[in-house]
Design a protein around this nucleic acid. Structure first.
Lengths: 184, 184
DNA sequence: TTTGTTTTGTTTATTAAGCAACAGTTGAGG
DNA sequence: CCTCAACTGTTGCTTAATAAACAAAACAAA
């Protein structure tokens, strides 16, 4: 890809993220973003239709990075392994400021929904691998696990991370294992 | 000015300066610079005719910054004031790694000559303000002071700054003042 | 010396980013 | 209510930057 595109996008995203951290989304203007990104205003419009599109793509990027972090290293898509969970919580801890802002701002729903959707997809993939088709409704189970996980993460981040990432990973893993034991 | 030009120049200069610090000038290639600057190779050539031009402009930029630092704040062009000298040595201390490299590398002459030329010009301006036209040859005096100052600076930088910047400023000021007392 | 690799400049056509100007919205304050 | 200022999208034209390809030169190793 043309490196100019990459550079412009990066500059705009960085500027937007930075502004999100220091003020409300509603107060952010395209002018500000362009100025901070050191990019012409028109360039912003050539990449994003409006500021909502920008927000969505920003969310998309960050969540993708989160999931990459979660899945990388081990080629197995196994989310419930300790290593994977640990890295995820550490990543969240590092970017806690951003995620906290995202989850508490007025535009939080967009972020939360996107996160939930991706988690649902991830859990579905997990279940597809495991060979259980008992008397439990798969669809409901997926919602159950996704919501449970997201809920824990959201609570942890928005409550100033009262426990260390390592501990959180252990606890969540323990909860997941408890289910697996139930199954057998 | 078009912000693209500014950005490209900055990226190229930064990359070049960075490479100068970690390897010999002779070993640096245009390819490397373009890659590190994240810029097309052709862009480098559109701003600089070759790597020597790049070196010269790099030198020019750094020396200009040095002199700006030296002259800023006090609108008076008085180099020999304590404040001004202090700032200059502090600046040199901060960028010592770069200046040391510049003054010891094989391409040092270019840098040294440019520095000397600018110092000569500066001293000339100083003398033009002061109303002394005694029995001393002005041209020689200019060379004398310029060389003296540069010599001290060069020695200080290339010898790992054996004294703090503050102290150097004091000492040099003292030497300058001694001359002024002689004059009266 | 010969061979293969890398670097150097230069050129081409294509495209992203630049600036400026515009009319239409919005929003806060007098 | 009205005004003024700032912001929003959009447009037309210009220009810097891009990728790709090239021959010539420099270079290292066989």
């Amino acid at each position: 890809m043309d490196r100019r595109i990459e550079k412009s996008r990066q500059a705009i995203m960085d500027a937007f993220t930075k502004l999100m951290l220091e003020k409300d989304f509603e107060k952010i203007t395209i002018n500000e973003i362009a100025e901070l990104a050191n990019v012409n205003r028109g360039t912003v419009y050539s990449h994003y239709v409006d500021i909502f599109d920008l927000l969505n793509q920003c969310i998309e990027n960050h969540i993708n990075k989160l999931f990459e972090t979660c899945q990388s290293r081990g080629n197995t898509t196994d989310i419930s392994c300790k290593d994977s969970l640990g890295r995820t919580f550490t990543y969240l801890e590092k970017h806690a400021f951003f995620y906290s802002k995202m989850l508490t701002s007025k535009s939080a729903t967009a972020f939360r929904n996107r996160l939930h959707a991706l988690m649902v997809k991830s859990v579905e993939e997990q279940l597809a691998l495991s060979s259980l088709t008992k008397d439990v409704n798969q669809e409901i189970m997926v919602q159950y696990f996704a919501s449970a996980t997201i809920g824990v993460v959201e609570w942890w981040v928005t409550h100033s991370m009262p426990y260390p990432a390592e501990y959180m990973a252990e606890q969540l893993l323990s909860l997941m294992e408890r289910y697996q034991n139930m199954r057998t």
